[in-house]
Nucleic acid binder design. Structure first.
Lengths: 230, 230
DNA sequence: TCAAAAGTGTTTCTGCTACACCCATGC
DNA sequence: GCATGGGTGTAGCAGAAACACTTTTGA
């Protein structure tokens, strides 16, 4: 079967930058290519957009097929269409970035269609195929820019988390340290956290209280003019 | 001549939201469609991406062809790929938004390939073809969001402008009023304006001093950590 | 009892906001 | 001389930043 058009058309793909957080470092999910071009090199998960699917659905489908990852925060990043970005011909890719709680998806590899998939610590990454290093750079900049004025950091954390975990996340992503008291004050002042009656245990130190993000509350306050801000 | 592919491919287009400023209102450039679908309706300028041109170049080319407009601030906005957004079939469009000084391009219509083009005051727009009203809404939100932390407002003004002009621009785009003294103070404190020895004349009142935006200075200060902020 | 992280308030400073009067120009 | 917008400074306030000691837990 083949498809004929009066004018030439670029191929259209989606690529996903999947960020995870393991409590210490920001991670990126990469897959190892098993065919040319760039065979054997690491690349962002992605693939061709079907004719009858929305772009975002295509991104989710590719993620599930290649890595077994399911629902998560997903947002369109940028469209990369450089004429020489793929040696096989003109390929325009709509890039997305995703945020997931790494602990809920410990083993991304293993899906039916899964190639070799692995988490890499940012920014210690291998050389990437195509222009994927550039895409990744843009995604990281977006994450840094957005995490300070939208409550997307919680997407990377377990449902229940301590203040230390939350602060470590912010400090790593922004490459900047915060005063513990001020950080806590600012976060709590927005009234979007639920103080749980649960505590983190195990460490040789006082148990930290756990919190969860109150998304419903956030949406409500957002309408009344709350400005999330770190 | 025709082109055959093993798998079907969506069409790829670019569409441009061109914002202008006439001193009183924010304007949007629209063209009237002279063929189906949506014949006779107003739409964003745009068209198909050539196989050998960058996406941004395609956007500039379409703008020149359809409206005669040349160099200007142009930035990728978002990619719209809804499966039913074009009745002719799957068409994915990479939307851009542009900012121009309206006085330098008084008559957009008149280019060789120009269809009927006209400036409309935002937000009093006719019903638009395709999903262009949604694209426009996204573009306006981006403009509102970006103008407060990037010095893009100057792209809409003449090279030489008074503080009143600048403030009117901000007030209209943000739908919010500012204190004259505080606005001036904040702008001047960033050290990115050049105070000219020229004055606006004509009004039955004291002549306003003119300023120009010092882009080189801004770029230099940006590196040293200046944060543009209104 | 020691090591390690959790939890907590106050002071200082900076930057934002609010606000009113005189000046220059054209008619 | 009057109407219109241009130009300017200061005081008060709120939010950010700086900062240190006590508590709890496990080993």
């Amino acid at each position: 079967m083949s498809f004929t058009y009066e004018y030439p058309r670029p191929s259209l793909t989606v690529d996903c930058v999947v960020f995870g957080w393991d409590g210490l470092a920001l991670k990126v999910l990469l897959i190892q290519r098993n065919e040319p071009p760039f065979e054997g090199q690491w690349a962002l998960p992605g693939g061709f957009v079907q004719m009858d699917e929305e772009l975002e659905d295509a991104a989710r489908r590719e993620l599930t097929e290649e890595t077994g990852l399911g629902v998560m925060y997903l947002e369109q990043l940028f469209t990369f269409g450089g004429v020489a970005r793929d040696p096989r011909g003109r390929v325009v890719t709509v890039a997305y970035y995703a945020l997931i709680d790494l602990h809920r998806y410990a083993a991304p590899a293993g899906a039916s269609d899964a190639r070799d998939a692995a988490w890499f610590s940012f920014p210690d990454l291998p050389q990437l195929a195509f222009d994927h290093d550039r895409i990744l750079k843009v995604a990281h900049a977006r994450l840094q820019g957005k995490i300070v004025y939208q409550p997307i950091g919680f997407e990377l954390l377990p449902k229940k988390f301590s203040f230390t975990q939350l602060q470590n996340l912010y400090e790593t992503i922004l490459g900047e340290e915060f005063d513990r008291r001020n950080f806590r004050k600012k976060m709590l002042s927005m009234n979007i956290l639920i103080e749980l009656d649960e505590y983190e245990t195990g460490g040789p130190h006082r148990a930290a209280r756990l919190y969860s993000f109150d998304e419903a509350r956030y949406r409500a306050l957002e309408i009344t003019g709350l400005q999330f801000k770190i």
